[in-house]
Design a protein around this nucleic acid. Structure first.
Lengths: 135, 135
DNA sequence: TTTTCACTTTAGAATCATTATAAACTAAAA
DNA sequence: TTTTAGTTTATAATGATTCTAAAGTGAAAA
């Protein structure tokens, strides 16, 4: 992902490109593959990089702005922490509760044949398939 | 559900049948249909019944014992509160984020035709289909 | 029956993730 | 420059959950 795209992501999220936000955005989006993270894991990463300490509140704010702009999705995982995904396309997940690891499943790798119709005046927004793993 | 079954549920969860636990168990299991609840909703119910006030910690302990014994399941819902379900059979859910309401979907009403195979030495424990609703 | 002892309940404290706050900081525009 | 709106930050507040320690309860032994 090019620098200009990073700036575009920030602008489209209503965020000025400050030093902290650019760092967060680069860490999230300058990679080959999409990935999953929690605010805690992001925070740990920036704590290790002694060059740049970013306040927890800034990480929360920035991540939420990206999420609201549609640049991040939130994954349905039982538990305390919120998992985010830089893959915002429609897709599904494996979840390994032993390692707390999420693995993406491409939307094309799941075909659902039969689905009940939505109740009383409601419509289906989206369908998430969650496959729990064991050893 | 008969009284003896209530006692059975308690015993099989490793719980002595105390007054508080019997009350909780009866509220959860003495009904025609299964239902969803949170610890908060249970607590509110017992607060209203002025005859019997049950400490929050007791509710948490009892609910967890039932869950560990397999008499309750925990539903995958994004958000702070934990949702429990007295339906412990394999099934799926609609979720209405407007009302925070969960609706059961019978396992037979969802047919999945294609599924990716589990990664590296892992097996599939179970599959949860979660259908988000909108208006 | 009384005693014992393990199990329970309870209120309140502690914890953990997250959100809010308010003061100090930054930077673009007037 | 000065202004002004937007930012970062440390810390406080919140809310769900878990822990703790003291007081309560009850089944079974003596």
């Amino acid at each position: 992902m090019k620098k200009i795209d990073i700036l575009k992501k920030l602008r489209s999220s209503g965020l000025r490109p400050t030093k902290q936000r650019v760092e967060i955005a680069r860490f999230l989006f300058e990679r080959e593959k999409t990935f999953h993270f929690t605010v805690e894991s992001l925070n740990k990463f920036f704590e290790k990089k002694t060059t740049s300490k970013i306040a927890l509140a800034t990480i929360y704010n920035t991540v939420h702005a990206f999420k609201n702009a549609g640049h991040l999705s939130e994954v349905e995982v039982r538990g305390k922490k919120t998992y985010f995904d830089t893959n915002v396309s429609n897709h599904h997940h494996f979840y390994d509760s032993d390692t707390s690891e999420l693995i993406d499943i491409d939307a094309n790798d799941v075909i659902i044949q039969k689905i009940p119709k939505a109740p009383n005046g409601k419509k289906i927004k989206n369908i998430e398939v969650f496959i729990n793993l064991k050893n």
